[in-house]
Amino acid sequence: MCGSCGCGEEDSYLIFRPGKSGIEKGEKPAHFHVRSDQKAVKEKPIQHQSFETAKNREIKIEEDILSANKSIAEQNRDYFKANNILALNLVSSPGSGKTSLLETTIQQLSKELSIYVIEGDQQTQNDAERIHKAGAPVIQINTGQGCHLDASMITNAVEQLQIKENSILFIENVGNLVCPALFDLGEKKRVIIISVTEGEDKPLKYPTMFQTSDICIINKTDLLPYVDFEIDKLKEYALRVNPKLIFIDISVKNGEGVEKWYECLREMDKS
């Protein structure tokens, strides 16, 4: 453990050289501190290995690797706030019913709420066509090989969509319970959708997504009699990961529970 700050005791280090497959274990790692005057200090006591050579200069960076995305996301958030746009980031695995839920929502609420949609998929315009038919302005983003939407994609799509003030913007993320979790898009709330055919242990298998979400919609409840899915178990697991998560049980197919979702939307739109 470092004598100056006590840090690093349980943390481990990995060192690798690009192109080489082996990993060196850095048990006595180089280790840095910042003085109150912000000048970098590189400690070189006996136990600290140093990578410094005579010509080398060490430059402190301390920059969040996701900072570029976060900064664009904040700009998006400011824009949404200034124009009173409620932006919701819809995340789920593929096939949980995000697009069907949006179609129903647009058909039912487009008279009272102004709704816009950004669709994210690796390929095809299929979802955008469905949303367009349902009656909402929509932009499709195809990420190609990409597994998630990022904040700059949203900035571009928002420019093209020309969203009116006092609207709701649904951002349907790429169907994937892993990658989109780390990328803030500037949304006000993140809505995770899970269907009862997926298994109740998803929150434990993909905890980051459940942890970063605000609302959890449990879809396809009409199938509950036919599948081995314990809805209470799912909620228990999800609350372990995120004690603040709010649940809405719905069946887009038969309309059960969707009114609660609409109420939730109206509430968020007002606030």
Binding site: F16, R17, P29
Partner: peptide, 17 residues
């Protein structure tokens, strides 16, 4: 890192518990 200034750099990853 290919074709960047980092191409030959040693990369130290500190895994934080």
């Amino acid at each position: 890192i290919k074709d960047s200034l980092l191409e030959k750099a040693i990369i130290n990853i500190k895994c934080i518990t």
